[in-house]
């Protein structure tokens, strides 16, 4: 009888300890190892900035592209990442707004519904939301999206030149957002240059194992070049490495995943549009505008891997594709 309350107390303490440790993992301070000062203003201005993002800030994909972009602007944001659960993201977004952070970046299409509820409660806070093509009519929300089909098309042009079998495999998460834009652009670029493509959407943004098997399925069907989008592509790149198949990246430079087989990556330079938004905010406009990342404004860039040799002709055809997309003579299939 006397030990019963002690057991319950120990169990409670244990559960509390586990949950505390778990919470420690989901609330990252910043992308670099140094941690962040909660009250630190942005380096490029007096504005304080926070980012809420669905995947890890060092995912070599969607979230890292934003962190790298802010770093390029000299901004060390507060970061809450890994918020696949929208309710967690909503709590973080509201929390930053309540703390008085000037600019809260909700880096995920899925956060739109939460933002529609939160933004009106904090009219002095600027919310930056993407990828999205509209601000939901909210005066203190800026929206941004990448024209991922553009870089996808250029990657497809290069891939068509690299493939020897003429067969290219594409893996994606779900058919939505910038993933479908990239995939459609890539397919258009590759097929316009004589390659055949096959696309597999796994249905998951995070299932690395399924993405790896999707890549393997393409290779089984004869593909000798692969590309893909989402943070789960690390599994597909692993399969590419194992089978010595070339890879094309998007969102972030993925060369580090395989310095021998990653040919090129479409890199998002969010800083191009984020800087514009911050300037507008400082000038008194808190939101209400939509920004597009594209090849013309430098928001999208094709970064080549020096470790993968491409002929001058291939580079020239990629440059021609970029020029054609910018002047409108090439349809990227978006």
């Amino acid at each position: 009888m006397s030990t019963f309350p002690l057991r319950r107390l120990l169990a409670l303490l244990f559960s509390f300890g586990l949950l505390a440790a778990a919470c420690g993992g989901s609330d990252a301070t910043d992308a670099s190892d140094g941690g962040s000062d909660d009250d630190a203003p942005a380096a490029s201005s007096d504005l304080s900035v926070a980012v809420v993002a669905p995947s890890a800030s060092d995912d070599l994909a969607f979230t890292q592209s934003m962190i790298d972009s802010l770093d390029a602007l000299g901004i060390t944001p507060q970061v809450t990442d890994g918020t696949f659960v929208v309710e967690d993201a909503a709590a973080a977004i509201r929390g930053y707004a309540e703390e008085g952070v000037d600019v809260v970046i909700a880096h995920g299409t899925q956060y739109g519904g939460s933002l529609a509820e939160i933004a009106p409660d904090f009219p002095e806070t600027t919310f930056i939301w993407g990828t999205a093509a509209d601000t939901q009519g909210l005066a203190n929300v800026f929206a941004y999206y990448p024209a991922a089909d553009q870089g996808g098309y250029v990657n497809g042009v290069i891939a068509a030149a690299v493939t020897e079998s003429g067969s290219i495999g594409v893996v994606g998460p779900v058919e939505a957002g910038d993933a479908v834009a990239y995939v459609n652009g890539f397919v258009a670029g590759a097929e316009a240059n004589g390659a055949s493509t096959s696309v597999v959407y796994t249905g998951s943004f995070s299932d690395v194992q399924l993405m790896a098997e999707a890549a393997q399925a393409h290779i089984d069907q004869g593909a000798d070049v692969l590309t893909g989008t989402s943070q789960a592509v690390v599994g597909a790149v692993g399969v590419a490495s194992e089978t010595d198949v070339a890879w094309f990246g998007t969102q972030s430079n993925q060369t580090s995943l395989d310095p021998n087989l990653v040919v090129a990556s479409q890199v998002y330079h969010w800083e191009v549009v984020i800087q514009e938004m911050l300037d507008l905010r400082e000038a008194g406009t808190l939101g209400g505008e939509v920004f597009e990342l594209n090849l013309e404004n430098g928001g999208l860039e094709i970064e080549y891997n020096d470790g993968f040799e491409l002929s001058d002709d291939v580079i020239a055809s990629a440059d021609a594709a970029i020029a054609g997309i910018i002047d409108g003579s090439i349809d990227t299939g978006a």
Binding site: A11, F14, S15, A21, A22, G24, G25, G238, L257
Partner: peptide, 28 residues
């Protein structure tokens, strides 16, 4: 049931935390 969920949350969070602190970006 509750203890198992606690273990799950601990594993999810602690592996994430350790990955950030000790590894950073995914490396093959």
């Amino acid at each position: 049931g509750i203890s198992g969920i606690g273990i799950f949350l601990f594993g999810l969070g602690f592996s994430d935390l350790m990955f950030r602190r000790q590894v950073g970006s995914p490396r093959p």
